[in-house]
């Protein structure tokens, strides 16, 4: 059992937990993830490690409530426990001194980009970060990203904060005015990462993306997390999650994310009906 020592609501539907998991906190590095299982009935859900405190033995996760599992997770409170919490999984980001690097985080993707930006800056790079969100309210970790970067540029879809528009527009301007850019790291929704890769490919800038396919074990045992990179099929949980974005088969990645859409809907519907029906309301199994 893993205790939630701190809970914070960052934005509607976006939550941050600091979870007591000393072994993970001591061994994890930027770019790696954990898998947690809420309770006996839970599925194994992967979440990127957003921060660590080896002294306190805590691991920070930031998640968006998109379906039943993440909604149930969001209902847990400080002092409560998560049943299983395993990590660190996946390979750490490759950190080195390259010169000028651009970090692009979209939505909840800002959470995983943050530790990478911080390490990149520590390694002596000029770190320009582009943060994108749907609106001002949903923009997270602005202060932290300012600390971790040399410069932060913000875009919102509706223009409620920073520039109006998509991160790719800002990226294109950077490519024109701030050459050379030695590396781009982009984490966010698949469509965003793909769009970023189209831009950087044309400009010939190496780009790393963090893929988040559906996973089960996270240790290389099941192959649920298959992605196609170049000519090869890779298991994202052990070979990734970071890959060279220019080699990723994006169409396949989008398709595979749809594998259980009907079942996810079913789970969510059942969950919402129970809430509306006043059956316990919290959606947990003790009220069944």
């Amino acid at each position: 059992m893993y205790r939630i020592v701190r809970k914070e609501v960052l934005a509607p539907g976006l939550k941050r937990f600091d979870v007591e998991a000393p072994l993970v906190a001591r061994s994890a590095r930027a770019g790696q993830f954990i898998i947690l299982r809420l309770d006996e009935w839970g599925e194994r859900i992967p979440l990127t490690i957003a921060d660590l405190d080896p002294e306190q033995g805590t691991v920070t996760i930031i998640f968006q409530e998109v379906g039943k599992s993440t909604q149930l997770l969001g209902q847990l409170e400080e002092g409560e426990y998560i049943r299983d919490f395993v990590g660190p999984l996946g390979r750490p980001s490759h950190i080195s001194q390259l010169g000028r690097v651009v970090m692009i985080g979209g939505g909840v993707g800002i959470a995983p980009i943050h530790p990478i930006a911080r390490e990149m800056k520590r390694a002596g790079n000029e770190v320009i970060s582009i943060l994108g969100a749907r609106n001002r309210q949903l923009l997270i970790l602005e202060e932290e990203m300012k600390q971790a970067s040399t410069e932060v540029l913000i875009t919102t879809d509706d223009g409620s904060y920073g520039r109006k528009g998509l991160v790719t527009k800002v990226l294109q301007e950077l490519i024109i005015h701030r050459s050379p850019i030695n590396l781009v790291v982009s984490i966010g929704p698949l469509v965003m990462m793909e769009a970023v890769c189209r831009v950087t490919q044309a400009a010939g800038i190496k780009t790393m993306v963090s893929l988040n396919p559906i996973m089960v074990d996270g240790t290389g045992m099941c192959g649920a997390c298959r992605v196609q990179v170049g000519a090869e099929t890779r298991f994202a949980c052990v070979d990734g999650p970071e890959f060279d974005g220019h080699l990723v088969d994006w169409k396949l990645a989008r398709q595979r994310a749809q594998m259980f859409v009907a079942e996810e809907k079913q789970a969510l519907q059942e969950h919402e009906e129970r809430r509306k029906g006043g059956l316990g309301g919290c959606g947990c199994h003790c009220h069944q």
Partner: peptide, 20 residues
């Protein structure tokens, strides 16, 4: 087999791991 045995997908949606 892992989805079905370890994660008990045959009892979906009581158990949350899906199988198709």
């Amino acid at each position: 087999l892992t989805r079905v045995n370890l994660m008990k997908a045959y009892l979906f949606p009581t158990y949350l791991t899906p199988i198709k």
